Simulated assay, not measured.
Amino acid sequence: MTIRSNRLVADVLHDAPATLRVFLDFHMRCVGCPIASFHTVADACHEHAVDLERFLAALQAAAAGPTVGFAPPFTGRDQPGERG
């Protein structure tokens, strides 16, 4: 997935959950922010005084990497604590 500066922050976080760590590493408070649905990546970088090109490169790397540590969504088929 290519992440461009005009993508909404909320869309980036939704489509590439591994990018959450990048936002936190850059000390950006976008995770859980109600403005994330309206701000683009470029807007967020401007608001947090973060270098856009460096940030985009980090987002791309995170989105391209494996999603180790992310559990699959709960489907309701398996009950927590039960074994088959």
Results as ranks from 00 to 15, higher is better:
Ala61Phe: 02
Ser37Trp: 15
Thr67Gln: 13
Phe26Leu: 06
Leu56Arg: 04
Glu47Leu: 13
Arg83Tyr: 12
Thr75Leu: 03
Ala18Gly: 08
Asp51Trp: 02
Asp78Met: 02
Leu20His: 10
Gly69Leu: 10
Asn6Arg: 12
Thr40His: 01
Thr2Phe: 13
Pro17Asp: 01
Ala10Arg: 14
Glu82Thr: 08
Phe23Met: 01
Glu47Lys: 13
Pro72Met: 09
Val9Asp: 05
Val22Ala: 10
Val68Tyr: 03
Ala16Leu: 08
Ala42Leu: 07
Cys33Ile: 03
Pro66Met: 05
Ala62Phe: 10
Gly32Asn: 11
Gln60Tyr: 05
Pro17Leu: 03
Val12Trp: 04
Pro66Asp: 11
Ala42Phe: 01
Glu82Ser: 10
Pro72Cys: 00
Leu56Ser: 03
Ser37Lys: 13
Asn6His: 08
Val12Glu: 06
Glu47Asp: 11
Thr40Trp: 09
Phe23Arg: 02
Pro34Ile: 11
Val31Ala: 07
Phe55Gln: 13
Gln60Lys: 07
Arg4Leu: 04
Glu53Phe: 10
Ala18Asn: 09
Arg4His: 14
Met1Gln: 00
Gly65Glu: 14
Leu20Ile: 09
Pro34Asn: 08
Phe55Asp: 06
Glu47Trp: 06
Val12His: 11
Arg77Cys: 06
Leu8Met: 03
Phe23Ser: 04
Gln79Thr: 14
Asn6Ser: 06
Asp43Lys: 03
Arg4Trp: 01
Thr19Asn: 04
Pro72Ile: 08
Pro34Thr: 02
Gly81His: 09
Leu13Thr: 05
Arg77Lys: 12
Ala57Ser: 11
Gly32Asp: 07
Val31Gln: 04
Arg29Gln: 09
His14Leu: 08
Cys30Asp: 02
Ala63Glu: 02
Arg7Met: 15
Ala10Leu: 13
